[in-house]
Design a protein around this nucleic acid. Structure first.
Lengths: 103, 103
DNA sequence: CAAACAGTTCAACTATTATCGAACTATGGT
DNA sequence: ACCATAGTTCGATAATAGTTGAACTGTTTG
């Protein structure tokens, strides 16, 4: 049981294809996912999230990916650690992530 | 050389991933693409395009898919024949269409 | 050639998304 | 305890997307 997690994430079976496609249909969000394919990363260290943009904007971009079920955002110290939900997406839509991440 | 074709379609190399993902991120458009995977079909016969919706709305839905490079819309008699650009999408983003159409 | 058919295009409107500052929350460090 | 860090949330505004009727284009049929 991970204690400090209050932001909602959809269960694997509730991840919807159209929501995932929409979340990935934005350049900035796609770039973030590209970066996360290498492994989890703290939000503060993600260069894909333009550091010049206000943090409310960055938070929003992450929220769209989280609510679509593409990433997990969990508290890690005073940072948010972002993790690509590779297993969940692969289980639900086999091959999708691979083809998107290659493109 | 097909004569009667005035609507613009992007060349294969100009098809953008984010545009394709966006076009497919809508239930109605995704349903249409699902229907077209069986083969080309006249717009008038596509049950995926809600026949109760006004034709301007149906035309718009088709336009988004065409401009993203997902389908070809060519004049065929007085209908529009819609064809999934399977080869082009497969060449550009291998595996993407397959995983989306399975989902 | 006129009428019907199958759409496209345009303009106005509605609805959904994105951006951003400001106030707020939680954690870690001193 | 206090302050800095790293975000979230809210509310307003801007930008983008979708819906629709009306007018228009091109094609077949009578």
């Amino acid at each position: 049981m991970v204690a400090n997690e209050k932001l909602p994430h959809p269960d694997r079976e509730d991840i919807e294809l159209t929501s995932v496609l929409f979340a990935l249909s934005d350049e900035a969000r796609l770039a973030l996912v590209q970066q996360l394919k290498e492994g989890p990363m703290d939000m503060a260290n993600c260069s894909a999230l333009d550091p010049n943009a206000p943090k409310s904007t960055r938070s929003h971009q992450v929220k769209v990916l989280r609510e679509a079920g593409v990433i997990i955002s969990e508290l890690h110290g005073r940072n948010r650690r972002l993790t690509l939900r590779r297993d969940d997406i692969d289980a639900r839509f086999p091959g999708l992530l691979e083809s998107v991440l290659r493109g």
